[in-house]
């Protein structure tokens, strides 16, 4: 079987039990919470009868495994239930916010990849003072927390310079220009860490590869420096960089929660936090499923890219 297909199949096969386990665990965890939805909505001063009525209406009085089974049945048909608080179908609620988070994530990843890898290659080739400077910049980029950077960016670019909006999101269907403008600062805040990480890893990978024997042999047999850097070194280094990209993507996914908070973007992060604090079980379970799917998708892409780039792991 084509090695790429085999890798994809393996990931998908692993994803199914994973989703079961994760969603079941979520149900279990949320049921352990000290408070519950009824109290949140009706307040603490309602009568026990009112709580019971509320729970019965939403099916929350049923035993946990029944609730889970019910949820699962519906989930397999694409229905993730409704939010206890807003009544809105979970799929819709998440679907509204997904583009925001994805725009942020993909944007930050793209910027990190292009600038980070570019910086890394540049500093690997220049060496000396340039390399040292790149190292220092990378270190600084690592150390500044994304939420803090976001806040500072707002202060500088939105308040003092007034170039970009401080908060809020414009969807791409409403106005592409507005969408871009509303995303520039959040993406910058998130991407700083990514650029730093990729620049450093790319530089190290390139330096390692450039010191390898096959590069030396190519050079000694007269292959042009341009070929050596771009056809040979970069291609070999990209094997390591791809793995780092994957890890970065998962890390940035976590970062979106923070950045959305700072910039008041209506993404998955804020919904997640509210739903969790309110014990809105269907929404929480739905979020967990979506996030897991995103992470699995990222890992799958990384696996595929890795197999494609590295002939040594392809078993004939």
């Amino acid at each position: 079987m084509n090695p790429v297909l085999r890798v994809m199949a393996r990931r998908c096969v692993m994803a199914v039990p994973l989703l079961f386990v994760v969603s079941a665990l979520t149900f279990l965890l949320v049921s352990l919470t000290p408070g519950n939805a009824a109290q949140e909505i009706l307040g603490t001063s309602a009568t026990p009868a009112e709580y019971a009525a509320f729970n019965r209406a939403l099916g929350l009085n049923l035993p946990l495994y029944e609730q889970y089974w019910d949820w699962l049945r519906h989930a397999l048909t694409g229905n993730l239930g409704q939010s206890i608080f807003t009544g809105q179908p979970v799929v819709q609620a998440i679907g509204q916010r997904l583009p925001v988070t994805l725009s942020l994530l993909v944007g930050a990843l793209a910027v990190s990849a292009v600038i980070g890898v570019g910086l890394g290659v540049f500093s690997a080739l220049r060496g000396g003072a340039g390399g040292r400077a790149a190292d220092v910049l990378a270190l600084i980029g690592f150390s500044l927390p994304a939420f803090w950077v976001g806040a500072e960016l707002i202060v500088i670019f939105a308040v003092w310079l007034n170039w970009f909006p401080a908060t809020g999101y414009v969807s791409v269907s409403d106005s592409p220009a507005g969408w871009l403008r509303s995303l520039i600062l959040p993406v910058a805040a998130l991407a700083l860490y990514g650029i730093a990480s990729l620049a450093k890893q790319t530089r190290e990978a390139m330096l390692d590869v450039l010191a390898s024997e096959h590069i030396r042999m190519a050079r000694v047999n007269g292959i042009s420096p341009v070929s050596i850097v771009f056809r040979h070194a970069l291609r070999n280094a990209s094997i390591r960089v791809v793995t780092v990209l994957g890890l970065l993507a998962v890390g940035l996914l976590g970062g979106t929660v923070l950045v959305e908070n700072v910039f008041a973007l209506p993404g998955l992060g804020s919904l997640m936090v509210t739903a969790a604090t309110q014990h809105d079980l269907p929404v929480v379970a739905g979020m967990v499923v979506y996030f897991t799917v995103i992470v699995v998708a990222i890992n799958l892409l990384v696996d595929v890219a890795y197999v494609w780039l590295n002939p040594r792991v392809r078993v004939r």
Binding site: M14, A15, T26, F291, T292, I294, N299
Partner: peptide
Amino acid sequence: LTFSLPAVVIIIVVLSV
């Protein structure tokens, strides 16, 4: 398996518990 878990989401859920 654990690598495929969305860390931030799990932590937030745990913190809600």
